[in-house]
Design a protein around this nucleic acid. Structure first.
Lengths: 121, 121
DNA sequence: GACACTACTTTGCATTGCAAGGTACATGGC
DNA sequence: GCCATGTACCTTGCAATGCAAAGTAGTGTC
């Protein structure tokens, strides 16, 4: 079931990590493992998709001990898309929560208004 | 993109609606439309899946004006599964939020502790 | 009967996770 | 040198589950 929940969120999570620091794909897998998991079989096609969208660029860095690393950096377009995804995510979470418990959802909406990062709907 | 976000959540949302009142599939579509959308092509196979899992039972009710309606009712097993799904959903949301903004996520975790419905992790 | 609405159903497709398999490079042990 | 291990990259087949589109059936209205 978790796998299905993840669909649609991993791109955004990867972009969010890259917004904080450039990474190579293998490193992203371990950085993400702290909070959630993404498999290697997923991350490479995913990075390719992000690149095709123009959301990331790549550069190679020689490694002192091992193969060279292909780093990914967020583009301005990618940063913009990440912001839009985050808005969509928040709206989506609110929608689901309003289905699960309409009363609790309105409390969550209040908490969101008090969140400095949040945007008033 | 929204479509992918929805994957994994619709079963839970449908169970949540049924927890509040029995419904027939077509009605579920319109009840859900208030907060989020589910297409007809989705809801019927989904109801079949829920039934196969033993989470819902069905009964037929003659309609005064139109074809008879196939109502779905939540079973005790379904109610249990719904509760488990909700726990998983909350954990998942927290995970994603912690990736998006590690600091804001810890604030959300505090808000969750103050939520009477919440469960302390 | 034709049309619109309600209610149900199926099917093909697109998308995107995962697991498994593989390649290449560097290092260390035998 | 050969093998094992770890790092880093990559591909492929599959499963699952949304959606759109097509269809059927019952009822009411014109």
């Amino acid at each position: 079931m978790k796998t299905q929940l993840k669909k649609g969120t991993l791109e955004m999570c990867v972009l969010a990590l890259l917004a904080r620091a450039d990474s190579y794909a293998y490193e992203l897998v371990s950085r993400l493992a702290d909070c959630m998991e993404i498999s290697e079989g997923t991350v490479y096609p995913l990075m390719r998709r992000l690149q095709a969208e123009g959301w990331v660029t790549t550069y190679l860095v020689e490694s002192a001990s091992g193969p060279s690393r292909k780093y990914y950096a967020l583009t301005a377009t990618g940063r913009q898309s990440l912001a839009e995804m985050q808005v969509e995510w928040r709206e989506f979470v609110a929608e689901v929560n309003s289905v699960l418990a309409p009363q609790a959802a309105s409390e969550a909406a209040q908490a969101k208004r008090n969140n400095p990062q949040g945007e008033v709907e």
